[in-house]
């Protein structure tokens, strides 16, 4: 637990400075913990686990500026995962009441599950619904791996508009999931 915390903290600190490889390792490690944590909590809804893992990863990314480096990364991630879980259960509570209490003190890092299952919701489909100013920067820079400068040239957008488009687009994607 202590070692995992230190390791994730180090990776996140580097990621926040712009280190993509460290960020990849951070999200990869995190997804295993999230899958195990959410799998335990959603034992009766196994098909929704991978969707919620993705939603939580996206939230971690979109809210990464809310991380305070002086505090444990575990507590931060756990609070995000728990919020997303409660939000998910509330969304479907029209069909089914939420009657299982969620203990605060549930160890996020108790176990890891590396085996990704099939996601039900397809993020590619949601991505396709975004307006061009959001979709094109995400597809060209984040999926195809082109540079911001190239993307700006190809789309006729300014470089800052490309960066803003990625940032706002990923937030819009998270909003589409919540609907």
């Amino acid at each position: 637990m202590g070692a995992r915390e230190d390791q994730l903290k180090e990776l996140l600190a580097r990621a926040l400075r712009g280190d993509g490889a460290a960020y990849h390792a951070f999200l990869d490690g995190l997804s295993g913990f999230l899958r195990a944590y959410l799998g335990r909590r959603l034992a009766r809804l196994p098909d929704d686990v991978e969707d919620l893992v993705q939603e939580t990863l996206l939230a971690v990314h979109n809210q990464r500026h809310t991380y305070d480096p002086s505090l444990p990364v575990t507590a931060w991630v756990h609070a995000i995962a728990r919020y997303k879980l409660v939000d998910f259960l509330r969304r479907r509570s029209g069909r089914e009441a939420l009657n299982e209490p969620l203990p605060e003190e549930d160890d996020l890092m108790a176990a890891s599950d590396e085996e990704a299952r099939e996601a039900r919701r397809d993020l590619d489909t949601l991505l396709a619904q975004l307006p061009d100013r959001h979709r094109l920067p995400i597809v060209l820079v984040k999926i195809e791996g082109r540079s911001v400068a190239e993307t700006a040239k190809a789309t006729g957008m300014s470089e800052s508009a490309v960066k803003v488009g990625i940032h706002r687009g990923l937030k819009a994607l998270a909003a589409l999931i919540r609907k």
Binding site: G20, Y23, F26, S31, L57, L58, P69, V148
Partner: peptide
């Protein structure tokens, strides 16, 4: 989209976060 692909997407060229944003 698979989770691995989402992680690739998010981790590619992450924009650095400036400290003291909230303050």
């Amino acid at each position: 989209m698979e989770t691995g692909k989402l992680i690739d997407l998010l981790a590619r060229e992450p924009t650095p976060v400036r400290a003291g944003w909230l303050r």
